[in-house]
Design a protein around this nucleic acid. Structure first.
Lengths: 145, 145
DNA sequence: GAAATAAAAGATAAAAAAGTCTTTTAATAT
DNA sequence: ATATTAAAAGACTTTTTTATCTTTTATTTC
């Protein structure tokens, strides 16, 4: 596979998109999000429902409703999204899928993988949703062509 | 997910196991391999069939038959196993799953991910099957508890 | 060359992940 | 209050991944 599940990729893209669209207040609907990040609408709806329950994104029903991010959510790290969707496998798992792999009884890739995992950890824990949004706002980065 | 597919994890473990068991000549059968690395026998058989076709492992049918690694195979990199099983996604893919992501139009995680991908690349390309086996032989590393 | 052995190949099956469609609930505006 | 809007929830389908079982083919040994 490839580090994150497809569902998790959608989740991150969606959160970035919501942050970008609602930076100055307002809400954005599921249709617009799905279009904006090229994801299946109803599938993404499920994912966002889950993130909403966990308080990672905020939502309001009814007319003018939609998804948005409050100040606290903007401060959250990418790790919170990834953990919500994919669990803690990439934070803790062995590169060869061994349950018994540890410092005491390491697999052949253990030490190299520790370094890689640490780097992934640092990226996810030290990067906030808001930071990613700043780059998007400045047009430095993009979510779609 | 978690970097490699489960199938790929089995593949790497199996190759390491074969290397370890046949370092001084001989062959090792699918049953022993499956037991040795804790994987479903028939499923692993398929995986090894594929690796065998690609010349990543060697095999002989019949009595005293089984799998082994020739000198050339021992020199092969881990990347060849991973690419055979999982393709090139982890070598080239975008962290957010964007097809359009590139240096010119990067996603918010592009640069951080490039560093991570590079590190994974280096590990896989620069580590040979034989090297992993040396550590196993010395008892420094293990494939099972 | 017949019997035994072990991988290769083929056909299914089960489980997990990804995707779709319909109904319900909550909020808003008129 | 009622109509409207949009998310939440539920049921279901498809696809992909992982796993199992059976038959065939190649090799070796006797």
């Amino acid at each position: 596979m490839s580090i994150f599940s497809k569902t998790c990729e959608y989740a991150m893209r969606a959160v970035f998109f919501i942050a970008h669209k609602t930076a100055n207040g307002g809400r954005v609907g599921i249709k617009e999000i799905a279009m904006g990040i090229d994801s299946p609408e109803h599938f993404l709806a499920k994912v966002l429902q889950d993130l909403s329950k966990r308080g990672i994104v905020q939502s309001v029903k009814g007319p003018n409703g939609g998804f948005y991010l409050n100040a606290e959510s903007l401060k959250q790290s990418l790790a919170s999204i990834v953990e919500a969707v994919d669990g803690n496998r990439i934070f803790t798992g062995c590169g060869l899928g061994l349950k018994q792999c540890s410092e005491i009884s390491p697999c052949p890739l253990h030490h190299d993988f520790k370094a890689i995992r640490n780097q992934i950890n640092q990226l996810l824990v030290n990067t906030s949703i808001g930071e990613c949004n700043e780059d998007l706002d400045l047009g430095i980065t993009a979510l779609k062509k």
